[in-house]
Design a protein around this nucleic acid. Sequence first.
DNA 1: ACCCTACAGTCCCCTGGACGACTGGAGGAG
DNA 2: CTCCTCCAGTCGTCCAGGGGACTGTAGGGT
Lengths: 257, 257
Amino acid sequence: MQLGAIDRRDDRPPYRQIADQLRAAIDAGDLRPGDRLPSEAELTRHYSVARMTARQAIQELRGEGRVVAEHGRGVFVRTPAPVRRLASDRFARKHREAGQAAFLAEADKAGAVPGVDQIEITYVAASPEVRERLRLGEEEVLARSRRYLLDGRPIEVAVSYLPRSIADGTPIAEANPGPGGIYARLEDAGHVLDHFTEEVTARMPTNDERRRLELPDGVPVLVVVRTAFDTEGTPVEVCDTVKAAPAYVLEYDFPAR
Amino acid sequence: MQLGAIDRRDDRPPYRQIADQLRAAIDAGDLRPGDRLPSEAELTRHYSVARMTARQAIQELRGEGRVVAEHGRGVFVRTPAPVRRLASDRFARKHREAGQAAFLAEADKAGAVPGVDQIEITYVAASPEVRERLRLGEEEVLARSRRYLLDGRPIEVAVSYLPRSIADGTPIAEANPGPGGIYARLEDAGHVLDHFTEEVTARMPTNDERRRLELPDGVPVLVVVRTAFDTEGTPVEVCDTVKAAPAYVLEYDFPAR
DNA sequence: ACCCTACAGTCCCCTGGACGACTGGAGGAG
DNA sequence: CTCCTCCAGTCGTCCAGGGGACTGTAGGGT
């Protein structure tokens, strides 16, 4: 771990020069994921700057999501999350027929331990966005909220909205909807699924999302809103998911027509 | 613009309380897009804190991408960028047959003035990712790099990679490939397009990307890597695009199978 | 009428200092 | 040997101050 010096004639301010040198050390592999960065005290000594200046350099890297500070321990190069590739056929009927919901099937394949918690099932008035997608009027919707874990670490929070008229009195309103998940139950109830649309955006997380997903600073989220349509062309479910962005690659395939 | 006070018994530190109050004012509409926030001096007077503390509160909101500081002028609530909805049929042949590349056709529809600049066309050795996607060996690729503007503001940077064997000696290697864009030229050359795959991720921008897209702090980017396949099943182009995340919604449609 | 110069207001960057909270390990008490 | 206490190292937060750079405007000179 060899750091350079600060050039006062450089047009970049000192804190940025320090940040650039640390970033370069990470990119060059001198600092590997999990390694501790020089402490604030070490940086102030090495560069002969005030502690606030060293802190600002580290703040820069935190904002980029490259390092994580742990109170009382140090600042560490962030370990890249294992990437989940989500193919657009992950909701294919063949997976449901194997008796597993999409998430479990996939975790199995990756050899990781899946988990679901923070399950909450309530009836609520639909937001304008949900109402538009489900083509509803004033009807209440069933909201199924849950958090997905992989090897004990939260990776996604999701809320499904279904029209009350469809969900009422079916296992969909239970915490555990049974083998194949709620899509299997929808088909049991006569709503054979035909296709999905997904709308993908990215943004910085809210404080609440940062807490639930245990995200460090500087990590954006992917927001995927999926609408499921049955063979009648009726939208039967809207699923609003928020994922830690670095842990995902979404794959889609579409014709040139 | 009415701000509260700091509660020293609150478990949130003062800078966070100030940030929360400012954020609430934005969410409540007391501060609208384009409005100036109270200056550092005003905040220090109002809350009786040191200037560093007021700065830290503002830093918090900048990291969330909610406000933008302008040197010498003030700190302003960020104006949400107009959202482009990108449907997965935007590369459909019918649009090309109208004689316009996908981007121009869409800008027209939205009534905005499109622009393309920073065009660079070079032959380079393919990166491992590109080589894998194009199923190439050591062959060089043509790299078409450009930046897209809408009403003069940069919204996307893109690099297309094509195998030299396909691009050489065609208008694809020219700065202006002619009506319908390079996809039309690929079909002229006998590579009739069959389908695309897109891989979508999100992350914080690099410094270079932040500069080229003129992004303020705290704004993530969407990365879309599209591969085009011809009717032989051969990948003929890889297009790597980086977009300012808040300005985009990507839409995909896929069957339940 | 035009241009140029001050200047006040604003954010940017840095210094040096202080206290608090958390972590992990060393060393002593039992 | 076990448990507890203490302490050094680390990051989190805050204070008070100073110089710098940028912006827009008011006012004066031409």
